[in-house]
Structures are given as structure tokens and as C-alpha cells.
Design a protein around this nucleic acid. Sequence first.
RNA 1: GCCGUCUUAGCUCAGUGGUAGAGCACUCGCUUCACACGCGAUAGGUCAGAAGUUCAAAUCUUCUAGACGGCACCA
Length: 896
Amino acid sequence: MELAKAFDPKTAEGHYKEWEENGFFAPEINEDASAPTYSIVIPPPNVTGSLHMGHALQHTLMDVLTRWKRMQGFRTLWLPGTDHAGISVQRKVVEQLRKDEGLSPIDIGREEFISRAWKWKEQYGNTITEQMRREGASVDWSRERFTMDADLSLAVRSVFVALYEEGNIYRGLRIVNWCPKDKTVLSDLEVKEETRKDGTLTYLKYPVKGTDRTVTVATTRPETMLGDTAVAVNPTDERYADLIGKTIMLPLAGREIPIVADEYVDKEFGTGAVKITPAHDPNDYQIGERHGLEKLLVMDEAGKMNAAAGPDFEGLDRFEAREKVVARFEELGLLEKVEAYEITLPICERCKTIVEPILSEQWFVKMDEMRDIALDVMRSEGVPHFFPQVPHEKVYTNWLENLKDWTISRQLWWGHQIPAWYDDEGNVYVALTEAEAREKAGGKQLRQDQDVLDTWFSSGLWAFSTFGWTGKGGVLNTPDLDSFLPTDVLVTGRDIIFLWVSRMVMLTKKFTGKIPFSDVVVTGTVLGKDGKPMSKSRNNGVDPIAMFDKFGVDATRIYLASIATGADIKWNDLLIETYRNFANKIWNATRFCLLNSANALVKVFEPAEVKALPAADRWILSRLSRTAAAVNRALDTYQYHEAVSLLYHFFWDDFCDWYIELKKDEINSGDAAASSFILSVLEQALRLLHPFMPYLTEELWQKLPGIGSSLHHPAYRSAKLSIMLADFPKGSDTFIDDAAENEVSAVIEVIKKVRNIRAEMNISPSVRFVVHVAGSEKLRDVLHANEGQILKLARAEKVILSDSLVVPKASARAVLSGGGEVAIPLEGLIDFEKERIRLQGQIDKLDTELERISGQLSNANFVERAPAEKVQELRDRKDEIERQAATLAANIEVLN
RNA sequence: GCCGUCUUAGCUCAGUGGUAGAGCACUCGCUUCACACGCGAUAGGUCAGAAGUUCAAAUCUUCUAGACGGCACCA
């Protein structure tokens, strides 16, 4: 069989369809009933989304783990699905409605709007799941879930009802983060900050009633003065002591408001007097509560001033109102000054609108018990165990310790409508269904709460609702729940540790008694070339699909795994090229192995047979075994980059650069035994590479002669042939062979020394020369056994072995590390001056090292206190350096 | 303000007490019959700076500078 000259990723990527159709991704493919399970639930991507680099990275890491464990014979499940993404979908549908029909959601009504949203989801919501197929994600599509599936919705209502009934969910009037554009409340975590240097601090003078004095207050939001219901000063502030208890005639509003004393006020900041707007500021709200102040709301849900702001301002946008308030104060002579002020504004994470703190009645989850659950799990079980542990564990626990209640209602239509109903008197009935609620209400006419729940509320149940749990009165246990919860690991980004990870821990533990997962792998952020997070506004994004097209899925995947250290990483196309080249290298190495393989077959290595093989064969098998063991160890601790590096260097350096080259003549001569052996090594290497490069390895593996289900893990013996189901090499000690490794190292060293001389002496590769090697009998035996390889790889004419060198003066020389010398007679080719410089350069290098080592060894403290082993190591090294340097010096003498 | 991370070769990054590493880029050489997405050979770092602990520090401690992240505050 002959392969094309270069690897074509497109062809290989066709394997996905076979895998999916053959059911390889489902845990049921595993026939071993007693096999241990391994499960991962995907962080459900937003249905409105399309694949970005962060997904590609995380999916790669999850797929590597899933494929690795599947090959190890675990009953493996990676469960896929998507998240209904309340605000995002709502916005898309609103926009579509406006553009296509010129209608607003109100025009068509809630029911119709939701039906449009479902249609939107059906039509566009599968973008990302299709892209995941391209990625090669081995997820079990038969278990795909959506956060608004019927049973997942039932789970949401069950949890809501249960938490309400035990008092962990309550409804209350609080200052919340309000987005006037989305017209909904946001949780603290959905609000980001933006620092503006062009902010202002406006100083307003408030007349004190019954005097001709004014009190100056400073504010960044002058329009809120229309809702002021007090001015506060510090009780110990002498400047204002006589004003406490007096009142202010509030300009523009014409209301009379009190001057109160409160410890909260910082005497040093601003003027020391603070305007108090309890309905529009969280701190003012607290002060208002303490002093029994009125809470006057002066804005509506769109951020426009309402009737309470007075006829002059009603209907104005908050920013227009701001200008107008300042202008009026100026007209009245009550504007003291406006100064430039650097201000930090709260911003809606999604739409970047400035968030308005506003008094509003919302639903909250009480966090006391939830926090304790999460902290207990961390303290008693160390769960979740973060990778990397530093700094995530500390940040996570710090955050939990300072947790505030979670606002869960959202003023949207798309999502899980809150299962709470009201009667005409405003009594609330919380139940799973309207029928149950009505029953509780004694048959009264009820109206359901119009709000929906925060999307993260349903995502918080993802680890167990996806396995069929629907709650008390429904399904509390399923075979999947038994088998797959707790899941083994969660792979996710740093940005949703609080938003999602913490809530899954709390809710899963509370409702199932189990932890959702033991390990959490936190990936770094893939940054753009400019070192900033990828974003549309910065236009520094890189589309993973474009990378798949340009370099192939396999190259992109293994590249992403190679950078998965947990640290942020700057994107660089050139580095994927490394792995595109690697893929091609693997392709061509396989191509070579197959070229003359007429009678060869892949086989399993028998220790007894291996013992009788030449050193080179035992060496590559030893290297393979070490690599396999190290790859398993690396993956055990999520050291993906380490695993990639091990595989890359094994394949390229050991297998291609040395093993293939050492065996080339034998293989090319059609030696079936040699061919079988190299194919068998290659076959195992492909298996090791499979989790990282699934398509390429499948494509090549299928072409190897002699592969059969015997290579499958026993749990998959009757399945259709696929490398996906092959046994992942463990790397047993049986084939570790130090003697073979030493022998081959000696051969390699000689070849490298000769090549170095050729290159440094500018001798053309076409020139063949005699190579003399002097050394121990053992060394000579080893070199003799590999004479053909040395001739070929060093491009030598002849190798002459002896116990001491007898060569002409006109020779280039080198020393070997284990004792021994190399010399190449170069009559007419050698430039003595150049050779002297070359040798002297080597001596200089040795001298630098010798100096350092001698210094250490002459330090009595070191010799006394360092471990004897270390001291001996250095002494040996010193002897070796001295021997080499002496030999080189003698070589220079010869030239003179 | 509090907590934390990072600073290593031209670039992008590995490396948690014992001889500084990789890929790419650079330099030199090669149509060597798997691969020029290749082969061979070099060159290139006082590991941000300072002090300390230690026989020994890129690695541990403290400080400084710069970059960044989270949280809090923000009249």
C-alpha cells in the first residue's frame, strides 16, 4: 500500500461520521459490566453562540480525557448539551421581530414570543453542536440535553419549590443592578466595571430651611437628586453639628427633606455631606432603612425619569435629565462647581449599558446555607480540587466567604418562568404547576409571576438534571445518575468559577447528596495576538474553524493541548504550523513503514522474543515504554502540555530521526521481521497519539497490516475496528532496557561527533572518509554491531576500531563521553588553524564548567553538608571533564 | 484598598533546591531513494532588579519595578 506524499486532513476528518454511526461515543459500547465509569458533563455552550477558541481549547481537553479513558476500558461518557441563554436569545428574537415584521414582543404577546424563540432555537441553535462534530468531540449525542428540555425544566421548578418551602428562596424589595437596555435585573456577577477618566463630580448647594445657609453635596449622578429624601452628615462633624435635625428645601423638587447624622459618612471625602437617594443607591438604601426615610423611585425600567421626578423631567432619559438638573442648578445659582473625576461605572456584561442601581422587588436565593455547603465540601473533602490549585482554590474560598444573596429573577420571557402565582390580594403560592398552586389557594383565580429565572439557576443543576433527576415527586434516581454522578472532572474557564462551578457544588450536594465532580481543570484564556482577550470590538479574534481549514483539526487540537498549562496564552498561528508539520511527519513516517511491508504484520511484543533482538529494537521499545508511562502520568494530573511534549519528542526525535534511520536499510531490503517490528512500534505510538490527533491516527491505523480487534481493549473486542477502542499503552517496565539505551546512546554519540566534524570542517556530504574510534572492548563491540548504521548515518567510508588511536597528524578529532576518541584522517581537507580553533572552543566550554565544579568541590561546606551522592556525582563529572579536556589538549598538541 | 498571578533565548512559552530547555525565527550546509510541512550542524539567556535563607536558588522568603486577574470601595 502506498500513501499520498502529504497528509490531507480533510479526508481523515471523515471518520467522525463512522464513529458516531457506530455508537462508539456512548458508554454502552463498553461490554464489561464491571468496568469503572468515567464521566464529564460539558459546560453547556450558549445556543446563540458559535465556536470560539475557548470552546475549542476546553473541548479538546475534555475529548483527550474522554478518549484516553475510553481506550483504558472505562465505561466512558462525555455528555453534550446547550444552555438556553436567556438574555442572548431574547435579544436575538426581539431583533429579528423588529427587523422582519416591525413588531415588538408586546405586540405579539408572551406565548407567541416564546414560540418564536423555540423556532429560533430549532433553526440556529445547532451551530455549535455541528461545529463540535468537526472538532472530533467524542460526546454521546444520544444523551444531548438542553437546559429547557421538559425534564430539566421540571428539575428547575422542583428545586425552586423546595428552596422556597424551606426559606432559602425569598422575594424582597432590594437595590438591584438594573440594565435599562435589557430591562432586567442582573446578578452581581453579570455586572462588570469600567473606569472612565472623563467622569465628573458635581457639587450642588442645598438651601437649609429657615436659614440663609446652604449645604454642598457632591455627586456623580446629579439626576438622582430628584429622588433625594435626606442629606446625611457624620455625627462627629463639627462643621454640620448645628444642622442635624434641620431640613433642606430640595431645589427643583420643592420637597422638604431632613438632615440626618450617620456614621457611614466619611468626613474627609468631598464636602462631608451626602445626598441620600434610598431608591437608587445601595448605601443610601441602608442609611434610609436606619433613619426610616422614604424611598422615592424617580426612574422607570428604561432608565427614563418618571412622574415622581416632576413634570419638568418626566420622560427624559437619565443622561438628559443629568444635564438638565445641572443647568437648572446653575440658573438658580446653586451649582458650586463641576470637577473632573475618574469614575468607575458598573456595566452590563452583555450589552455594555451603564447599569442603574434601582429599588426593585425580586426573587433571591439566600446564600448562608449554600455557602456553608460549598465551604464544607472544600474543607472536608478538598473538593473541588482545582488544577492548577494555585490560585483558584484560594480565590474560590475567599469569594464564598464573602458571598451575598443571589438575585435569580430576570425580567425576560425566554427561560424558566418562576413557578409562583399571585391572587388578587397579592398572596403568593409557589408550586410545581398552576393546578397545584390553585389548590393551595383554595381554587382562587391566580396569575403567574411574569419573570423567569437566571439561566445560571438551571445550569447549576446541570450535573444531575442531565442524568434524569427531576426532583421530589418525580424522578430522584436513574441508572445514569447512579453510574455517572459524581462526574470525574469539569473543564472550564476561570470566568465561570463563581457563576457556575460554585453553584453546581452547592445545588448538586444539596439535592443529591453527592458532589458534582471531584476535579476542576481551569483553563487559561486564549488571548489575541495583541495580548488582550479576543473580542469582536477589538477585532483580534481567531476563528477555530478557520484554523481547522488551514491546518487541520488534528494539528489545531494538539497545539491547543500543548498550550494548556493553565496560564493565559497569546495566540500565534505559526505555532500551529509546528503541529501541522508534526501531523505530516507522522503521516510520512507511516508511509515509509508501509512502503516495503509486503509480508509484515503488526503484532504484540513478547518479552522473550524481544530479549533476543538487536539493541536498536530494544532501545526504541524501551523509549516507547518510558514515553507511554510518562504520558499516562501526565494526563493523570492534567499536564496536557507535558504529554504533548513527550509524544512529540518520542515520535520525531527517537522514532523518526534515529530509529527509522538506524533501520532504514533493513526495512528497505524488505525484511519482514524488521518491518513487522517497526510497524508494531508505530502502531503503539499512534494509539498514544490518538486522544490528541484522533483523525490522523484513525486514518493511519486502519491502513496498518495485521491490525485486528485483538488490539482493542477487551471491553470492545466485538466492536467494529477502530483505534478509538484500542487499548491505551500503559508502558510496563518489562521493556525498559537501560543496557540497550546506553548502547544506542554510544552509537548516536559517535555519529553526532562525526557529523559535527564534517559540518565544522565544511566537508561536503558527498565526501566519504574513514572514521577511527578508540575505546573499550565493550564500546568497540557495540560499534561493531552497528557498523552499517554508522557508515550510513555518518556518511563514512569505513570504520576502524582499536584500543588506541593510530592516525595521521592531519586528522580531526573528538572525545566521547564514556571514554573513547574519534579521529578522521583528512589529508588535504583539514585546515589546521580551523581545527585548532574548533578544539579550543570545546576546551573552553569544558573549562567554564570545570571552574564552577571545582569551586563547589573546594567548598568544605558543600562536601560536608550536601548529600554524598551529589558530591560523588560532581566528582565523577569533574574527572570526566578533565579527561576530555586533556584529550582535546593533546589533540591540539598533535596539530602543532 | 485587600487577595493573587506573571516577568526565563529575537518571538511564544516549558521548567518548584543540585550541569538553563522546546517550537518558531536567525546563521551555515544539504535535490541523502518517508517527509523541503524535510535532513544535518551551529549560534543565542548574569532566568525583571535588590536583599536574605541554604553547602547549593530560575525554583524558597522579603522588598522594589513593570504587566495582569479577582474582590471591595467609589458622595
